[in-house]
Design a protein around this nucleic acid. Structure first.
Lengths: 199, 199, 199, 199
DNA sequence: GATGAATGAGTATTCATTCAT
DNA sequence: CATGAATGAATACTCATTCAT
């Protein structure tokens, strides 16, 4: 029941952080909308910032599990399309979190804090990595880079892997923005185009 | 000299709004960095919010002039590439403003305010439109849509203009994000790719 | 067993009140260190203030019994030295209580409350006084005054009893401060000097 | 005029800190009694704790100047009596500060902070020491110790300097307590006794 | 008896804004 | 124009106390 309350608070907070902004969302506001007292908030979370961090970590964890990357950390051509579709699904399901994240990363000092919280390590995609690993954002990035580099080996030097990687991230970033700030609707056609461009 | 002071204040404020966030930037901070007193700020701008709005309007105006769209508001195939390159240049030159804008638009109620400040009208791209017009963001959007719709006329029904338009905005949004949050560097290769994809 | 729990709570509370201060010591803190729940505290003590008062009364009672003043309430010359040594012992044994008391008396309104809780009465040192009497602090003071006044009768008018009483209390106050805020060690030499000065 | 306001605030705060206790004195209370707004307090002092520290430092400085120790840092027999009387005067004049100090030192962790703020150094009583020196409390202590040690040289080994020093500090501590917590009145007789005992 | 979730009044602190000089 | 002292409403956070279980 403690967990349920925490989840409730985090859900309410996330929604308001995402839509009205972290600074404009007051603790009173969250408490009122969660139907609890201000004081109780502090039984569960040490501070407003701690609440934010809990939300971020929980969401990153959820996303990690939902993405459910092959444990070998390699993306085959067939898996690539599945991967894109998983991202599409994830963006819809965690819309509020992504809004929050984009908002936070827009502040360059917060951006650094975030990078510190999820540090890149030498042992990227080590076999047997665990959900507790905090470097999974980087694991995913490496997996994608590897995908395009393998493609280069197949296609020869005319294929500019680095530019292709850049373009992929650019496209996915733009797709994410569209997805999280628009009211639902399916993105089937855009997904197909993206798959067509980068598969 | 009044204008110079105003410009100074706006420049300092924009930089801090963009990097530390609008809410975390205090008036004191801006005044100190601009080398003036807090009180004087209020001789030039009615409030913090008025300062923000001035910055946004000024920047939108500047961008409008720099984009320097053909007065007929039509984009030919040759002009399209030039247009993309202008956007690239504009993103670099107004990096701080774009950071601020992305940050603001992340808050859905602010997003609405922004849309109200730059209302879409029936008379889009009316001949003889003036810089004072507040609907120029929409003029640009319309110009792009027109470009792709004309392309459809040329290419036939196999060309899905709507999806193409979506993909173009998605790509440009992602490109913008990359550009404004990365340290300089040229984006020549990505520009070429984008031109290749959408020209 | 109720009494044991109460004693435990009071002991823990006294230690923290004395060292960290009454206001900085929270009920949660006490409960945690006493190994009980916050709620249970309120089964034993009505409020934080009630807990404080219980501690003070209990300690004053203990001290009263330990001082074990002759029931006739008179201090002979031989008893005087014993009395001083008893005080020394008592200061060491109730170090925390004395720290607390000094702290409380430093606040002048609390000082008044304290005086009200232990009211001076006309019938000081009435024969047959009971431990329940709340005026024993005054009984002790009277006993000391009497000691010096009897000394005056023996020594003649050249002996300024009032100043001597003042000096005695001054010296004992200073001695108490040294004793309760220093880490153990014996005060034998100082005791001898005090006895030498006032016996 | 800035200094006057700061002094006003510090005076009001000191009085309340001393009489009602630091924790029970609220910023609102201080502001109200100083006739200013809460916010203004924070123009002058960063925090409640900073205000406290300012008061302590200012008072220690004042006391240092008022004690006006011989620059050679040595106490002759004649100077000793003057020194005692200066202390008496200082206790009366800075009554509130001494109440506050006794109160603070009653909390053992605060006690440590205080000692750190006025660190003992090797170069005690270095010739030409300045008011800015933060080790003057120790300078005074050393001066007193030296006084008694010189007395021992004169009086021979039967004179127990260490116990004498202890007794002096004990007596002065007790005298201070009496002085600062009683309503005025002169302490002439006690002073004479103290001078008689230790000169 | 015992727990700890829940409350809410209270406190320090911040900051946009005003205004006398 | 220019200053910065002054205000006060708003906000995060604390903690003694209550009460359903």
């Amino acid at each position: 029941m403690r967990d349920e309350k925490m989840t409730l608070i985090m859900d309410v907070a996330l929604k308001h952080f995402a839509n009205e902004g972290y600074f404009r969302t007051t603790i009173s506001h969250i408490a009122r909308h969660a139907g609890i007292s201000k004081g109780l908030m502090y039984n569960y979370f040490e501070s407003k910032e701690a609440l934010l961090k809990s939300i971020v970590h929980k969401s990153v964890n959820e996303i990690y599990h939902n993405l459910d990357i092959d444990k070998d950390g390699t993306l085959s051509t067939e898996e690539f399309e599945i991967f894109i579709r998983k991202i599409d699904k994830m963006l819809k399901e965690n819309k509020y979190f992504w809004r929050l994240l984009f908002q936070l990363l827009a502040q360059i000092d917060v951006r650094e804090q975030f990078l510190n919280a999820f540090p890149e390590t030498d042992s990227l995609i080590h076999p047997g990595h665990e959900p507790g690993d905090t470097n999974y954002p980087w694991q995913i990035i490496k997996m994608i880079r590897d995908y395009f580099n393998r493609k280069k080996e197949a296609k020869g030097n005319s294929f500019d892997a680095e530019t292709e990687i850049d373009m992929f991230f650019i496209t996915m970033a733009g797709f994410a923005m569209k997805s999280i700030y628009s009211e639902a609707g399916d993105n089937e056609k855009e997904i197909n185009r993206i798959v067509g461009l980068f598969k």
